[in-house]
Simulated assay, not measured.
Amino acid sequence: MPTPPPPQRLVLVDDHEMVLHGLDAMLGHFPDDVEVVGHATNATDALTAVADTAPDTVLCDVRLGKESGLDLCRQITTQYPDTKVVLLTVYDDEHYLFQALRVGASGYILKRIDGQELVNHLNRVREGEVVVDHALAGRVALSAARLSAGEFWSGAHLGLTQRESEVLELLVAGHSNKGVAGKLVVSEDTVKTHIRGLYRKLGVSDRSGAIAVALREGLFR
């Protein structure tokens, strides 16, 4: 009989310590499958934990307070290519999923999952699969079908939501935040939230940078 592999070594990253304690307790029921070797509540500590423990997998939220788990995923997969990253989050948004896959994530799982399902997914990741929460799988297939049919919105391939794309189009057209809010019938605070999101996804820090990316990519004609 072949010798079973050692437990998969995990670093857990979430900005809520209560979540980390809950994951510890849940995963503690599966000592033959997983071993938690590190914890972090922010990106800096997460990178330190990965450097110190060389885990097989990092289980990380999409949002880490004011930091981005997607940016952390990109850093880990670039600096530590032997370490896999799985996003464990409450955001059941296929656009976050697309962005996660673009930065090298090996999985995207929703936090409502139970312990056995989580371990099963982690075992599949260890074997080289990319796992997607079943609750998102159907929507991803539909999105892919719409994309191939040319029915998707501009910027979807960059991870933009439909509303972020609408905001960006209005910025390109020269509208102020107030003008965008009026066009979309939303508050200026909502517009600012969408703008921050599209800046992060496009990797820019200001309006001119976002417009430059939109023009370079030919998003709006």
Rank of each mutant, 00 (worst) to 15 (best):
His95Gly: 03
Asp45Pro: 01
Ala40Met: 12
Glu164Leu: 02
His175Leu: 15
Asn123Cys: 07
Ala212Gln: 09
Leu97Gln: 01
Pro55Gly: 12
Val167Leu: 10
Val213Met: 06
Gly65Arg: 05
Val213Cys: 08
Val140Asn: 02
Asp93Thr: 01
Val37Leu: 10
Arg9Glu: 08
Leu110Asn: 07
Lys201Val: 02
Gly155Tyr: 12
Thr48Val: 10
Val19Asp: 10
Arg163Ser: 13
Leu171Thr: 00
Val180Pro: 00
Glu166Trp: 09
Leu59Trp: 02
Ala51Arg: 15
Leu158Thr: 00
Asp189Asn: 13
Gly138Glu: 01
Gln99Pro: 00
Val37Tyr: 03
His95Ser: 10
Ala173Ile: 02
Cys73Phe: 07
Ala156Gln: 15
Val62Gln: 09
Val213Ser: 06
Glu217His: 01
Ser205Ala: 11
Leu215Gln: 13
His157Leu: 15
Ala156Val: 14
Leu136Gly: 02
Val86Gln: 02
Pro6Leu: 15
Ala105Leu: 09
Pro7His: 09
Ala43Phe: 00
Leu219Glu: 03
Gln79Ile: 01
Thr57Ile: 14
Asp114Gln: 10
Ala181Leu: 07
Lys192Met: 11
Ala25Asn: 11
Glu164Phe: 04
Lys192Thr: 01
Asp206Cys: 09
Ala100Asp: 06
Asp82Phe: 04
Val140Gly: 00
Gly138His: 09
Leu158Cys: 12
Arg139Glu: 03
Lys111Pro: 07
Pro81Ile: 14
Arg139Asp: 01
Ala135Phe: 15
Ala145Gly: 15
Ala144Ile: 06
Gln162Gly: 11
Ala144Cys: 12
Asp56His: 14
Lys66Glu: 12
Ala49His: 10
Ser165Arg: 06
Val13Ala: 11
Val50Gln: 13
Val11Thr: 07
Leu70Met: 10
Ile76Asp: 00
Val180Lys: 03
Val58Ile: 06
Val132Leu: 15
Gly28Asn: 12
Leu70His: 04
Gly218Phe: 02
Asp45Asn: 14
Leu12Ala: 04
Leu198Phe: 13
Thr41Ser: 14
Ile195Asp: 02
Gln99Ile: 00
Leu171Ser: 02
Lys183Gln: 13
Pro5His: 15
Ser187Val: 05
Ser176Gln: 11
Cys73Asp: 10
Gly22Tyr: 07
His16Met: 14
Val86His: 01
Ala135Gln: 14
Val125Cys: 05
Glu188Ala: 01
Asp45His: 07
Leu168Gly: 03
Gly218His: 05
Ala141Lys: 08
Lys178Val: 02
Val130Ala: 02
Leu27Ile: 11
Asp71Val: 09
His121Val: 00
Phe152Gln: 10
Trp153Ala: 05
Leu87Lys: 05
Ala100Lys: 05
Arg200His: 08
Asn123Thr: 09
Gly128Val: 06
His39Trp: 13
Thr77Phe: 09
Ser165His: 03
Tyr96Arg: 06
Gly38Lys: 12
Thr78Pro: 02
Gln75Pro: 04
Gln116His: 08
Met18Pro: 01
Ser165Glu: 08
Val36Trp: 09
Asp32Cys: 02
Asp33Thr: 02
His95Pro: 00
Gly69Cys: 09
Leu219Asn: 01
Thr41Ile: 13
Leu23Val: 04
Thr44Phe: 03
Val130Ser: 06
Arg102His: 14
Asp61Pro: 10
